[in-house]
Structure formats: structure tokens, C-alpha cells
């Protein structure tokens, strides 16, 4: 097999605000195989966004390695198509210019970038809005434009940080189904961060469950349902069981996989949301020096680490589960501006 498209090992990060030090992530390993979509769920403040920022190259972690396609991305942006939590459209660019931003930064001439983006406006439900200012678009449209911009970037991996967090529940549900379609056309290695368990399960091949701060990998749940997954899947008994598994792992008193009783009681005593690490004095950023030399592309298999694909069946054209509905290909986004 090929190397993991995305590989994170031993990732730890501490923020310091004045004398206060907050541990966001503590020893997180995540791997995404090529063509795989992995969801990361966890309570607020567990460092999900930090994980993506590290992979996007815009945040240097306290410790650990992050690789995309075998390349070290710590402090080296430009390897992943990253969509931050808010839609973050540039208000001074019209929809089309927002979509082509990344291509322009890649040095692609404007005209050429537009040719690439134009057909996607139809697919992303934004046809006719190419010249609109972001402030003239609805929330769902803004999110789709941000997704369009992300998917348009020719990068090995896609990182989505709670792309639907700001949307209402109904729009959100539609967007999840729609995103699945988009992703099935694209099939890039993707990390999808969310705090919505259902969303995570519907979209992902595997769900990585993080604990409350500091974020550690509690468990990794494979999601075996074939694609495309119909909206009705969420009522399927197997799905409900998986959902229960993930929710149990998310519960504040749940133990980490294989961790001791003591670890659990510690967690319990602190409760979620409490800052567990507090140091006085300055916090050393103890990230080891980069060691590109001894870990090249060749050893990629080893980097998959503890949470390799757990035998997930991702048959492409396999829609044998007729009970959950056939493939839908609406092609156009669910909501229009009212």
C-alpha cells in the first residue's frame, strides 16, 4: 500500500496566555489513507482546530510531526486545502475571485483559474452568483463558496474545520448530504472536524474520537456503510449502534482505549472543560528540531501508527444496500437564497 496521505504523530500543543498554560493536544496520532475521509469529533476546546491548523502549516505545535504526502508540513504551509471554521471569504472579492484565490496564489493566471472555477459554480449551487459580494450571499451559500474554494485547490489533502458549524440544523443536514456527493466526485484524502456525531458518521470512513482538553485519541471507530449513504441511513440500527459507541467514547467519564483506571478517575475529577495543566513561568516550546533526514517517504507505512485503517470496506460502485436508497446526484446545492 501507499503511504498515508496525512500522518500526524505524537502531536502535542500548549497555548500560553500570560502565565497560564493550556494544553490543547497531547500525543495525538491520526492517519488518513489516500482516498479516505476521516472525521474527528470531540468536545469543544479539545484541540480539533489546532490539529487542522498544524496540518495547514499555520501553527507550529509544541511537539510531534505532521506530514502530508510524506512531506513535513510543520510550519510549512501550502500542502493542504484548508477550510477554517468560519467561511472566511474575503469581503473585497466577488464570489468568483474568492473561489480562485488559492489558484491565483499558486501563480495560475486569473483567466485560467476562472475557467477551472466556472463549472464548479453550478455544482456548488452558486450559478448566477459569480459576481456577488460575499455579503450578498446567504449563510449556506457562503459555506458552499468556501468549500468550492477549498476543493478547487490542487492539494493532496483536504482539511475541513466544522464547515457547517454556523448553519441551522436543516441547512446543515442538506449540506452534509451534498458534501458527500462532492467528495465522492473528488475522493481526496480528507480530515473533517466536527462536534456533531451524526455528521461525522455519515461522512467518514473512520471517526477519530478525541477526549476533552487536552485532546487525546480516545478511540477510532470504522464506519463500514457503503457509499453513497442516503439520509435515511441515520435511522439504520447499525448506524445507531455506531452512534452509541462514539457517544460513549465522548462521554466525560469514558476511559481512553487501554488506559488505566487511574487515568479515568483523573479525568473525572477534573471534569470536562477545566484546564488541567497549569505551569507558572514561561513555557518552553519543546518541539524537537526537524529531522527530515531519517524519516523519508519510504517509511510511510510505519507512520500509519496505532490507528491504521481498520479494514474498512470502501467499495466504489457498491450500492448493494438498496434499503438505504440509491445513489443521489442532485448536482445542485439544497438551498437557494430566499
Amino acid at each position: 500500500m501507499t503511504a498515508a496521505a496525512v500522518a500526524v504523530r505524537g502531536l502535542a500543543h500548549r497555548f500560553s496566555r500570560g502565565n497560564r498554560v493550556t494544553a490543547a493536544l497531547d500525543g495525538v496520532d491520526v492517519a488518513v489513507a489516500p482516498g479516505e475521509l476521516v472525521s474527528v469529533v470531540g468536545p469543544s476546546g479539545c484541540g480539533k482546530s489546532t490539529l487542522l491548523k498544524v496540518l495547514a502549516g499555520v501553527l507550529v505545535p509544541s511537539a510531534g510531526t505532521a506530514r502530508i504526502g510524506g512531506h513535513d508540513v510543520v510550519g510549512r504551509p501550502g500542502r493542504a486545502a484548508y477550510m477554517p471554521q468560519r467561511d472566511l471569504l474575503l469581503p473585497w472579492r466577488r464570489a468568483m475571485e474568492n473561489a480562485t484565490l488559492g489558484c491565483e496564489l499558486d501563480g495560475l493566471p486569473r483567466g485560467q483559474a476562472r475557467l477551472l472555477a466556472a463549472p464548479l459554480f453550478e455544482r456548488f449551487g452558486l450559478a448566477g452568483f459569480e459576481r456577488a459580494w460575499p455579503s450578498e450571499l446567504s449563510g449556506g451559500m457562503r459555506q458552499r463558496l468556501a468549500l468550492l474554494r477549498t476543493f478547487l485547490l490542487p492539494r493532496e489533502a483536504v482539511l475541513l474545520d466544522e464547515p457547517f458549524g454556523a448553519l441551522d440544523a436543516i441547512t446543515r443536514r442538506q449540506m452534509v448530504d451534498w458534501l458527500q456527493d462532492i467528495w465522492l466526485d473528488d475522493r481526496r484524502a480528507s480530515l473533517f472536524v466536527t462536534h456533531d456525531v451524526e455528521e461525522a458518521l455519515v461522512l467518514a470512513d473512520r471517526v477519530v474520537v478525541l477526549s476533552a482538553r487536552p485532546g487525546r485519541v480516545r478511540t477510532v471507530v470504522p464506519v463500514p456503510f457503503p457509499r453513497p449513504r442516503a439520509p435515511e441511513l441515520v435511522t439504520d440500527l447499525g448506524f445507531v449502534a455506531l452512534r452509541r459507541t462514539v457517544m460513549a467514547a465522548l462521554a466525560p467519564y469514558a476511559t481512553e482505549e487501554g488506559s488505566s483506571e487511574q487515568g479515568a478517575s483523573e479525568e473525572g475529577a477534573r471534569g470536562p472543560g477545566v484546564e488541567p495543566m497549569r505551569h507558572d513561568g514561561p513555557m518552553p516550546h519543546d518541539r524537537p528540531m526537524r529531522d527530515d533526514g531519517d524519516r523519508g517517504r519510504g517509511s510511510g507505512d510505519g507512520e500509519r501508527g496505532a490507528i491504521d485503517q481498520a479494514g474498512v470496506d470502501r467499495g466504489d460502485g457498491d450500492d448493494g444496500r438498496s434499503g438505504t436508497g440509491g445513489p443521489r446526484r442532485t448536482g445542485v446545492g439544497p438551498d437557494r437564497r430566499g
Binding site: 504551509p77 477554517p84 472566511l88 484565490l101
Partner: peptide, 14 residues
């Protein structure tokens, strides 16, 4: 300027 916007364009390689 919005620091998250700056992060975004930096993530694109700017």
C-alpha cells in the same frame, strides 16, 4: 486584518 484570514491565505502558500 482578521488573523484567521491571514492564516487562511498563508495556508494556501502566500
Amino acid at each position: 486584518a482578521d488573523p484567521e484570514l491571514l492564516d487562511l491565505v498563508r495556508s494556501m502558500g502566500a
